[in-house]
Simulated assay, not measured.
Amino acid sequence: MSVGIVAARYAKSLIELAKEQNVVEAVYADMKLFLDTAHQNRGLMLALKSPVVRHEKKLAILKAIFFERVNPVSYSIFTIITKKNRESILDAIAEEFITAYDEYRGIQKATVITTTPLTEELRKQFNKIVADATGKTVELEEKVDPSLIGGYLLRVNDRQIDASIKSRLNELKLQFAN
C-alpha cells in the first residue's frame, strides 16, 4: 500500500479521534509543530526512517522531544504509529492531517506567484477568484518571482493558471521553433 494511502487513513482516524475528544485545534497545532521540527531537524526524520534504529529508541526520541509539548491525543498517535512500525511516515501523516483539518474547517489553500508583492486590491481579487471557484475560505500564500517578467501564476490544489509573460514567451519560442 502506498505511503499516501496509509498516511491518509491514519490522519483520518486522528482527526476523528480529535473531534471526539474536542481537541482538533490542539492536534492541528501539534501536527504543525511536528512538521516544523522535522523540517528544521533533518536528523529527526533520518532517525525515524532508519531501519537500523530500533523502534523503542525512536519512541524514546519522540517522547523526549514532544511528550511535554503536545496534547495527549497527538502523543498517542506517535506511540501507535511507532508500535505499528510506521514511524517513517509520521511526516506524511502530519501533512495529511493538516489537509484533512483544512477540509474540516472549509479552508482552501492557494498560492499566487507574481513579479512584485500584491497590493491589497489584488489580494482581494485573488481571494475572490479562489473562493468563487471552491466555495471555501481562502488561505492565500504569496510568493514573488521576478523571472515571471509579468503576470501571475495561481495554484489551487493540482490546478494551475499560468498567466505569466514568461510562459507566453516560451509558447512563442516553441511556435517559432516548429
Rank of each mutant, 00 (worst) to 15 (best):
residue 135 G to V: 13
residue 36 D to C: 03
residue 164 S to V: 14
residue 117 P to V: 05
residue 50 S to R: 07
residue 156 V to F: 04
residue 16 E to M: 05
residue 3 V to Y: 02
residue 101 Y to L: 06
residue 29 A to P: 06
residue 80 I to F: 02
residue 157 N to A: 14
residue 159 R to P: 02
residue 108 Q to L: 01
residue 97 F to V: 05
residue 43 G to K: 00
residue 160 Q to A: 12
residue 128 K to W: 02
residue 148 L to Y: 07
residue 67 F to V: 13
residue 105 R to V: 15
residue 30 D to Y: 12
residue 159 R to D: 05
residue 95 E to K: 13
residue 126 F to S: 09
residue 152 Y to G: 08
residue 3 V to E: 11
residue 78 F to S: 02
residue 162 D to M: 09
residue 154 L to Q: 13
residue 55 H to L: 06
residue 176 F to S: 12
residue 71 N to A: 03
residue 156 V to G: 09
residue 105 R to W: 04
residue 171 E to C: 01
residue 102 D to R: 15
residue 98 I to H: 07
residue 100 A to V: 01
residue 12 K to G: 10
residue 84 K to D: 15
residue 136 K to E: 08
residue 49 K to E: 11
residue 107 I to W: 01
residue 147 S to E: 13
residue 47 A to Q: 02
residue 165 I to T: 14
residue 162 D to W: 07
residue 156 V to H: 08
residue 19 K to W: 00
residue 63 K to H: 11
residue 86 R to D: 06
residue 75 Y to I: 05
residue 32 K to V: 09
residue 106 G to E: 04
residue 178 N to R: 15
residue 167 S to E: 13
residue 79 T to I: 03
residue 99 T to L: 05
residue 52 V to Y: 05
residue 39 H to L: 06
residue 104 Y to I: 06
residue 71 N to I: 11
residue 148 L to D: 08
residue 167 S to C: 06
residue 152 Y to D: 00
residue 127 N to R: 11
residue 117 P to Y: 06
residue 82 T to P: 07
residue 178 N to Y: 14
residue 74 S to Q: 07
residue 54 R to M: 07
residue 147 S to Q: 08
residue 154 L to W: 12
residue 146 P to D: 10
residue 43 G to T: 05
residue 163 A to E: 14
residue 10 Y to L: 08
residue 87 E to I: 02
residue 131 A to D: 09
residue 138 V to K: 02
residue 56 E to N: 13
residue 41 N to S: 08
residue 172 L to F: 15
residue 168 R to V: 08
residue 105 R to L: 11
residue 38 A to V: 01
residue 133 A to S: 11
residue 6 V to K: 04
residue 88 S to P: 00
residue 92 A to Y: 09
residue 17 L to Y: 10
residue 14 L to F: 06
residue 177 A to F: 05
residue 97 F to M: 03
residue 10 Y to Q: 07
residue 54 R to D: 15
residue 57 K to C: 00
residue 158 D to H: 12
residue 158 D to G: 15
residue 170 N to D: 15
residue 9 R to M: 09
residue 169 L to N: 10
residue 34 F to D: 00
residue 104 Y to C: 02
residue 49 K to S: 14
residue 93 I to P: 10
residue 166 K to I: 02
residue 32 K to S: 09
residue 115 T to L: 05
residue 53 V to H: 05
residue 18 A to F: 04
residue 84 K to F: 02
residue 117 P to M: 04
residue 165 I to V: 15
residue 109 K to N: 10
residue 171 E to M: 14
residue 2 S to W: 00
residue 72 P to H: 10
residue 11 A to G: 03
residue 40 Q to A: 12
residue 134 T to A: 04
residue 34 F to W: 00
residue 138 V to W: 04
residue 54 R to E: 15
